[in-house]
Design a protein around this nucleic acid. Structure first.
Lengths: 214, 214
DNA sequence: ATTATCTATAGATCTATAGATAATGC
DNA sequence: ATTATCTATAGATCTATAGATAATGC
């Protein structure tokens, strides 16, 4: 077990001022969960280090024992949000025996599931204006790789092979835009069941890609 | 002429500390333009009253002569962003001799044009987390009316008339989500010509609505 | 002894008001 | 006299560090 791992029984160090039921998470993960909730609901700039720390159950200053500040929390949350989608995309790209249409549909469905499925609306992090900053280049890199997987799958469809480059880029952007736009729809109506929604979005994405004439 | 209107020649009041070329805008409009730029690029919470005022060419305190604070600027910008789309939507709803398919396409195209066409990426305001606050209920009301226009047009199409209510709502949300998602695409590639992009988005929207099997 | 936490706080903001000032208008 | 602006600033933050403290571990 890592020294910062989830708490077993007795814990070293001064006790927290506000004792609360154990979450089973490490202190760092408690901070990440608190930041996810606050960043997605109030925004990044509007969230203070105090708010994050107290929601995680500790005092403001204690946060600095685990992270260097808000930026680090956002950077880590962002990357953790793309990584699962990217893993899925790589597997689908490798599975080249299956029809590209099916794989594209599956990628869309899975991606929407990840973006909208979590406890907090993690996909909402993509929409924060601060995300464009240079500081988050790591996130942009993995996101670009994911987008390229979309492009490759669209190009591998029967209709996609015939597209000129500019046309392929446009379709890719529209599909990708739909997937990201879904975050806004989910935000405005969070109670809709995610799985049916994800499938409907995947259907819509294939229509945009020009693959389906249902 | 209103007393706060665009400056003709001589101006009453103490001169500004930093004299700059005339913009032709009233001081209030200069503030709105500055706020639009900063809110869309840096975000609302991250933008200080000082930054807005100085970009508008005046000192921080002078801003309060025209607006009560940042909130008022955001509220006004938000409403000004939907209003043109809503006007267009009302006209299209009234023109009931034309096929609903054509009118829906036109609404999508026009809406994308407004969202992405301005000097600053005004559509980006929709993405700010702060926009959900109660304070901006006025914006949400007009936005809801616009969304309802989309719903009515989709329902009026040949295929739309047969949809169950739940299915109609889902299609409406997906189309609306695509239009809003386009803001993100535009943000990531602002150099793409807006008019061609708007038409491609309208095509995609009709496919999602189930209207087109091209 | 080590560790996780705490309390306290310096320094850096940021907002919104008070009151002064430099133009034009009458 | 009226107006648009300015300068100055009080009060309220917010961040990040310094140093104290209360646990466990040896």
């Amino acid at each position: 077990m890592g020294s910062a791992g989830a708490t077993g029984g007795r814990r070293v160090g001064r006790p927290r001022a506000a004792r609360r039921p154990e979450t089973g998470l490490s202190a760092r993960d408690e901070l990440l969960a608190a930041a996810a909730e606050l960043f997605t609901t109030r925004g990044y700039a509007a969230t203070t280090t105090r708010a994050v720390a107290e929601l995680a159950g500790m005092r403001q200053a204690s946060m600095y024992h685990y992270v260097s500040g808000k930026e680090e929390l956002l950077a880590e949350l962002l990357e953790s949000t793309v990584t699962p989608s990217l893993t899925c995309a790589r597997e689908l790209l490798a599975r080249d025996a299956a029809p590209a249409e099916d794989r594209l549909w599956e990628l869309c469905r899975t991606d929407v599931g990840f973006l909208c499925g979590g406890p907090h609306n993690l996909g909402g992090l993509y929409l924060l204006p601060e995300v464009r900053a240079e500081r988050f280049a790591g996130f942009h890199a993995v996101r670009a790789e994911l987008k390229d997987a979309y492009r490759q799958l669209i190009a591998a469809t029967a209709e996609g092979g015939a597209l000129a480059k500019g046309e392929l880029d446009l379709r890719t952007d529209l599909v990708f835009g739909l997937i990201e736009g879904v975050i806004l729809v989910h935000r405005s109506d969070p109670d809709r069941p995610v799985s049916a929604f994800a499938e409907a979005t995947a259907d819509a994405a294939l229509r945009i890609a020009g693959v389906w004439a249902p």
